[in-house]
Amino acid sequence: MTPGNEQDSSRRNWIKNSTLAAAAILAAPQIHARETALAVPKARRIPIAVSTYSYWHFQEQKYPIEKVIEDAAKLGFDGVEILHRQMDNETVPYLNKLKRQAFDAGLSLPMLSIHQSFVQPKAEDRKKDVEHTIRCINLATQLGIPCIRMNTGSWRTKKRDAAYYKDGQEPPIEGFTDKDAVKWCIDSYGECLVAAEKAGVILAIENHWGLSSNIDYLLEIYKPLASSPAMGMNVDTGNFVGDPYPQFERLAPYATIVQAKTYYGGGHYYDLNLDYKRIASILRKANFNGYVSLEMEGKEEPSVAVPKSLKLLREVLS
């Protein structure tokens, strides 16, 4: 190669290398920004279920759970919470049918909501509800449901009218105290948790009126049992006496699952105007990532009120 050609070749290599270096410098900020964006964790999409209770408020004629599953899939819910009292029966074929229908529709079954009470002075009465709970644990296992909604129970010494839902005050049965009831709940839950741990099912205690209207009592029951892997908490946005937000903020860090009430058309039992933007903010602060299950408790037709409720929850929880 002649000296002139050598110089031309060196010049061409220098220009090529300089161009590549300049391109690398220009691209570096874009690459860094892209890598940074990938490194920043994205907010997880909170799954939203709908309770079958949203379609049936204990009227004489039950609303079929199969229809709720069908509707939930069409509307874009992530799951269906089953109300035990709404089930047609407890046979294995029926349970398997519901499980298969939900699976085919791409829906989960996150919770089975049952009714029981451990606020009962007679040990034999509490034992019956312990046995009922264990039977429901077996139902949940068959359905593939990982969580059961549980209550504390109540003294049933006061009529469930509008005044009751405002203050939640309920005097104990004569000769007993609320502290007695707290102990009964702890002991009875302890029995149920043995079966729940074996089955891998969570028992989620709810602020569901009665004794649990008092958040201090609810936590007094929950905390001694919280070391069990089967113990959980279901926080209901609509079941607070007085200002709901400070109480919701207290319970949110313990929440396994949340039930979100709406009251379109006026509530069947009481009305609340809940600020779901504020509720969503509290959940984010508590790093809650579990299911939120809609309980539409209003008088408006579910075909109208349930889609509106889903839209509201999607907007605030996104």
Rank of each mutant, 00 (worst) to 15 (best):
Q142R: 12
L193I: 06
I148F: 11
S108W: 07
D8E: 09
W155A: 09
L95M: 10
I148Q: 12
N289W: 11
A255S: 09
A49R: 12
K122W: 12
I25T: 06
V182Q: 05
A39Q: 08
A230C: 02
P246N: 09
L312P: 02
P224A: 08
D88P: 01
P64A: 06
A252W: 08
P121M: 10
V119R: 13
Q59H: 06
G242W: 07
S54R: 13
E249V: 01
E174T: 13
V258K: 06
E90K: 11
L143Y: 02
I46N: 02
W209E: 01
R156H: 12
A73E: 01
E170T: 00
L139S: 08
M87D: 11
L312S: 01
Q142S: 12
E301I: 01
Y164C: 08
S227Q: 13
V241R: 14
I145G: 05
L251C: 13
Y270H: 05
N289I: 15
A37E: 13
R278C: 01
R284G: 04
D236P: 01
T177I: 11
M231Q: 06
D125V: 06
D71N: 13
I145N: 04
F248V: 12
R278A: 03
Q116S: 11
Y217I: 09
D125P: 00
A280T: 12
T19D: 00
N96S: 08
G210L: 02
D271G: 03
Y276W: 03
P224G: 07
F288W: 04
H208Q: 11
G4T: 10
F248H: 10
I25R: 04
P172H: 04
L143A: 03
N13P: 00
N138A: 10
V182D: 03
Q116G: 03
R135E: 10
C147W: 00
S51Y: 07
E66S: 12
L211I: 15
Q101E: 14
E301P: 00
L211P: 14
D275K: 10
S318A: 15
A305F: 06
E70R: 10
P64K: 02
K223Q: 15
S228E: 11
D125R: 08
T141E: 09
D271S: 05
F118S: 03
E297R: 00
T262W: 04
A21D: 00
E301Q: 04
A162H: 12
H115W: 15
E90Y: 14
R11D: 07
L310K: 02
K128S: 03
V80L: 04
K99N: 05
R44W: 02
T2I: 05
D178I: 01
T133F: 07
P246L: 10
G200D: 05
T141C: 06
N89Q: 12
E295C: 12
H208Y: 14
I69N: 11
I282T: 14
W14L: 13
S281V: 12
V258T: 07
A27H: 09
N5V: 08
A230H: 00
P146A: 14
I202A: 00
L75R: 10
G266A: 03
N289V: 15
S10A: 15
I114G: 06
S154D: 15
E60H: 08
I215P: 01
P47L: 08
S188C: 05
A196T: 05
D125F: 09
E81A: 02
N214S: 11
P146M: 13
